[in-house]
């Protein structure tokens, strides 16, 4: 169950880490869903054409980055509202992918290719047989390790480099950056492109795990990634935990289908309900803590 959850977590986590960078730079990127979808499509097509997972994932990353670059041009250079631009990017993905797919393959629907390469499981040269720990650490697909490594990388980047400091100051106080002679727009643009890279990679991993492209394969995972950013209180490790909670909720609701006679569609709402409850309980507890801390003064 944990292993399964980790597999579900990886794409959400990676997309959320990218979104976290742009969120810290003051750009709420609501187009993660569309960026993931684009990454998924590009990754499947190129992996099928070349037989190379690496090339496929790189193309997914590139597609996400390009679309995000377009986002940055529209929101920064055209001065369009970030929210509406994000909605537009999502629409562009939902309309553009079937359009391109129809031109290339004559179908707007499922893309299934013969002898598709699947994401490899990582095999370690060493192993040990402690039951629970073994399942937790070994035998996952590459995305899981990648996601955890990237969490560390994003943390280092955001908190231990001057680049990360600038990204964070763009979000907190862009004028301060401008007074230092640096361009907030430039850092914002880089942050948006990084979010496209994360979402493209996440989408690619999601699709290559299945080996097919389905219309709406992301099915809300981009939105969940966005929520994970806030649920994780805009910190990399928090995002990791939040993405895992989401994945666990999804695993639980899938497992529940076999046990309880709950209709399929209703279970779709379970991850959302669990997240709301987690959020409200967390903030209520935090608010209570603050009140106690403040009261002696």
């Amino acid at each position: 169950m944990i292993a399964n959850s980790l597999g579900i977590m990886a794409p959400i986590l990676i997309a959320a880490l990218g979104g976290l960078i742009s969120e810290r730079a003051g750009v709420l990127n609501i187009s993660l869903e569309g960026l993931m979808l684009t990454g998924a499509f590009a990754a499947v097509v190129v992996t099928a054409a070349t037989g190379s997972i690496v090339l496929g994932l790189l193309t997914g990353v590139l597609a996400g980055a390009l679309l995000a670059f377009m986002f940055s041009i529209i929101s920064i250079d055209f001065g369009s509202n970030i929210f509406i631009t994000g909605l537009g990017i999502n629409l562009l993905a939902t309309g553009g992918i079937p359009f391109i797919s129809n031109q290339m393959f004559g179908t707007k629907g499922v893309l299934r290719f013969a002898d598709m390469t699947l994401l490899p499981r990582v095999v370690f040269p060493f192993d040990f047989r402690i039951p629970l720990l073994h399942d937790l650490l070994f035998g996952h697909q590459i995305g899981v390790y990648l996601g955890i490594a990237l969490t560390g990388l994003v943390w280092l980047g955001l908190y231990r480099t001057s680049f990360g400091l600038r990204i964070r100051s763009v979000g907190a106080n862009p004028e301060a950056l401008r007074l230092r002679g640096l361009s907030p727009e430039r850092y914002r643009r880089i942050a948006i492109i990084l979010s496209g890279i994360g979402a493209g990679l996440g989408g690619g991993l999601l699709a290559l795990r299945l080996g097919v492209y389905l219309p709406n394969i992301t099915s809300g995972r981009g939105w969940i990634a966005l929520v994970a950013i806030f649920l994780g209180y805009r910190r990399p490790v928090g995002v990791l935990i939040a993405a895992f909670v989401f994945a666990l909720a999804e695993t639980v609701s899938m497992a529940a289908q076999g046990i309880v006679a709950v209709p399929n569609t209703v279970l779709l709402s379970l991850p959302y309900i669990l997240t709301v409850i987690a959020m409200v309980v967390y903030s209520a507890a935090r608010a209570g803590g603050n009140r106690r801390a403040r009261s002696p003064r």
Partner: peptide, 13 residues
């Protein structure tokens, strides 16, 4: 859908 997207891009520019 694509047209709606492009309209979204320019309409608040």
């Amino acid at each position: 859908t694509i047209i709606q997207a492009v309209i979204f891009f320019v309409i608040t520019a």
